[in-house]
Design a protein around this nucleic acid. Structure first.
Lengths: 234, 234
DNA sequence: GCAAAAGTGTTTCCTTTACACCCATGT
DNA sequence: ACATGGGTGTAAAGGAAACACTTTTGC
């Protein structure tokens, strides 16, 4: 028996926080299939190319984000037979978290708020599913990793970091308790000797990312409320 | 330019708890490459086959676990160019968690304790790396999901479940507090009206898996101890 | 001075931990 | 009777949430 060979792509879910919205980098399609839909930036991998290398190359070539240090991690692989009507394609999705960068110079590539992308399904292929998986991964990662800082510029204030959490999770957080938690977490933030007043009010200390790879203790997002108790009658 | 086409495989990390050890299902290789090494069960995907379908098929064909309800989830995808010396192969790894089952009838497929597999590197390809990733995923999943029960038979006691946690994490747990936590977690366990004395002592209630997909509150594994404090002088 | 945002202290509540103690079986 | 493991009660310790209050800037 012969071994079937398939086309393999890497697709990129690149997220950022801009204008108070969680946004993703999308490609506006101007031809079939899925003309006038959006798709994730991506492309075929080369025969001699490792997967993370392909992801970095496509980040430059198709997302227009060359020479930018962006956190990139593998998300998942999608391969059901009819996901691309032209041919069988297995796609390895990567998740990228970026600070608020200018979009690519190409008009075809733009940042778009994720609510707009996910509410009306104008997505090509199964890219809405992939985007949703990437968003959920990002939300979960903020709890146990210091990756919220990947959405921030190299130096940032605690309040800016808090706004990242609030926007990605869609939940308000207490500024005082948040401050204590993140400054107390082990090697999450390293203070600089500089401050800024760019957010108004009293000058805020600027921080840089620390060396932590996981957060101890974690920053748990408020849960909807899960216990079976109700208020007992008096 | 033409689209490169690659061979795509699914490889299986199937874990179980047997004889007080976390064990994986491995294939004993009797030919080149990597003759006399172990490899993970797996195989090429078919052209018209979805990835989870291929994983289920290979679980039956190559792992010898047909008609067994085993939790299967995608682990990660491995694709660096030289991982298979014969040809470029991209491999989508799946993680399976199984109760203590008899091994396949085929002598080539057997359960092996993971410490033995990972300590001396007699692994084919990058299968040691894949196995380690699968083990870490399983350890992490026990915290936030009810998947520990996937290692147990359909009906099990709290103590049997606790032994799963202890063996997978390699940590002793307080039986009393463990009992309270798992029986208190929302829809983790549903009590039956039956008991067993198969572990000796007072009869223990038998439970079945509940409908929960995540654990609230989570079962956090004891952390090594991370704070920077030391004992201050009096 | 006043508004605005940063940051600290304190109280309350709740979860987790440690462990004493009782329970129900096999031998 | 007594050994063995199952299961409950409870007090102490630790962490999170709520929020009053102080600090430091811009205007």
């Amino acid at each position: 028996m012969s071994v079937p060979r398939l086309a393999v792509t890497v697709d990129l879910v690149v997220l950022t926080v801009r204008e108070q919205r969680l946004s993703a980098l999308v490609w506006r399609r101007d031809r079939q299939p899925y003309e006038n839909c959006w798709s994730l930036p991506g492309g075929f991998i080369q025969l001699d190319e490792d997967l993370p290398v392909a992801a970095a190359r496509l980040m430059a070539e198709r997302a227009g984000l060359a020479d930018v240090r962006i956190h990139l991690e593998q998300l998942a692989t999608y391969g059901y037979p009819d996901r691309d009507p032209r041919q069988r394609v297995v796609s390895v999705a990567y998740l990228g978290l970026a600070p608020d960068l200018p979009a690519s110079s190409r008009a075809q590539v733009l940042w778009q708020a994720v609510e707009i992308l996910t509410e009306a399904d104008r997505a090509a292929f199964d890219h809405r599913r992939i985007l949703l998986d990437g968003i959920e991964r990002a939300r979960a990662k903020l709890e146990y990793s210091p990756l919220a800082a990947a959405f921030c510029p190299p130096e940032f204030t605690v309040a800016e970091l808090r706004r990242v959490y609030e926007i990605v999770w869609g939940t308000p957080l207490d500024p005082r308790n948040f401050h204590r938690k993140v400054t107390g977490a082990d090697r999450f933030l390293v203070p600089t000797d500089r401050t800024t007043t760019r957010d108004g009010g009293r000058p805020a200390r600027l921080y840089r990312r620390g060396a932590a790879e996981t957060l101890h203790p974690p920053m748990l997002r408020p849960r909807p409320l899960s216990r079976r108790e109700s208020v007992p009658a008096p």
